[in-house]
Simulated assay, not measured.
Amino acid sequence: MKKIILPLLLASIGTAAGVGAGIFLKAPPEETAEHTDGEKDETHAQDAQKDDDQGDAKYEESGDFQYVKMNNQFVVPIVDDGAVSALVVLSLSLEISEGQQSAVFQREPRLRDGFLQILFDHANLGGFTGTFTNSNNMNTLRMGLREVAKNVLGDIANDVLITDIVRQDI
Results as ranks from 00 to 15, higher is better:
residue 117 Q to T: 11
residue 88 V to T: 10
residue 65 F to M: 13
residue 76 V to Q: 01
residue 49 Q to T: 13
residue 112 R to F: 04
residue 68 V to K: 11
residue 94 L to Q: 04
residue 66 Q to C: 09
residue 90 L to S: 08
residue 169 D to S: 01
residue 19 V to H: 06
residue 106 Q to K: 06
residue 108 E to H: 00
residue 162 I to E: 03
residue 159 D to S: 14
residue 160 V to W: 02
residue 18 G to Q: 07
residue 157 A to D: 08
residue 50 K to Q: 08
residue 107 R to H: 11
residue 92 L to Y: 09
residue 49 Q to L: 15
residue 151 N to K: 12
residue 162 I to A: 03
residue 47 D to K: 15
residue 29 P to N: 09
residue 136 N to A: 12
residue 113 D to H: 13
residue 10 L to P: 01
residue 31 E to P: 05
residue 76 V to I: 13
residue 72 N to I: 06
residue 122 H to E: 06
residue 38 G to E: 05
residue 5 I to N: 02
residue 152 V to S: 07
residue 162 I to R: 02
residue 168 Q to M: 01
residue 120 F to Y: 14
residue 65 F to L: 14
residue 14 G to C: 14
residue 6 L to T: 05
residue 21 A to K: 01
residue 111 L to S: 03
residue 27 A to N: 15
residue 26 K to M: 15
residue 99 G to W: 12
residue 51 D to F: 14
residue 3 K to R: 07
residue 139 N to A: 08
residue 2 K to M: 04
residue 67 Y to T: 14
residue 154 G to Y: 07
residue 49 Q to Y: 12
residue 6 L to E: 03
residue 3 K to M: 01
residue 157 A to T: 10
residue 32 T to Q: 11
residue 37 D to A: 03
residue 78 I to S: 02
residue 29 P to C: 06
residue 94 L to Y: 13
residue 50 K to T: 10
residue 134 N to F: 04
residue 153 L to N: 01
residue 133 T to R: 01
residue 119 L to M: 08
residue 152 V to T: 11
residue 6 L to N: 02
residue 28 P to M: 11
residue 96 I to K: 08
residue 38 G to L: 03
residue 82 G to V: 05
residue 129 T to D: 13
residue 99 G to P: 06
residue 91 S to H: 00
residue 156 I to L: 08
residue 70 M to K: 11
residue 101 Q to D: 05
residue 75 V to W: 01
residue 89 V to A: 02
residue 68 V to R: 07
residue 124 N to L: 08
residue 32 T to G: 12
residue 20 G to A: 12
residue 117 Q to R: 13
residue 168 Q to C: 02
residue 23 I to V: 15
residue 95 E to G: 08
residue 87 L to V: 03
residue 63 G to D: 12
residue 29 P to Y: 11
residue 153 L to W: 04
residue 10 L to V: 10
residue 99 G to L: 03
residue 65 F to D: 12
residue 151 N to V: 09
residue 104 V to C: 11
residue 36 T to V: 05
residue 160 V to R: 07
residue 162 I to Q: 00
residue 109 P to V: 03
residue 126 G to Q: 04
residue 160 V to T: 05
residue 101 Q to V: 12
residue 99 G to V: 02
residue 121 D to E: 14
residue 134 N to A: 04
residue 23 I to R: 10
residue 59 Y to I: 09
residue 68 V to P: 04
residue 135 S to A: 10
residue 122 H to F: 15
residue 139 N to H: 05
residue 81 D to W: 00
residue 126 G to P: 04
residue 76 V to H: 02
residue 4 I to L: 08
residue 102 S to Q: 14
residue 10 L to S: 05
residue 79 V to C: 04
residue 60 E to G: 15
residue 87 L to Q: 00
residue 19 V to A: 15
residue 30 E to Q: 14
residue 33 A to E: 14
residue 170 I to W: 00
residue 73 Q to V: 09
residue 161 L to M: 08
residue 70 M to T: 09
residue 31 E to Q: 15
residue 75 V to K: 04
residue 138 M to G: 01
residue 26 K to P: 10
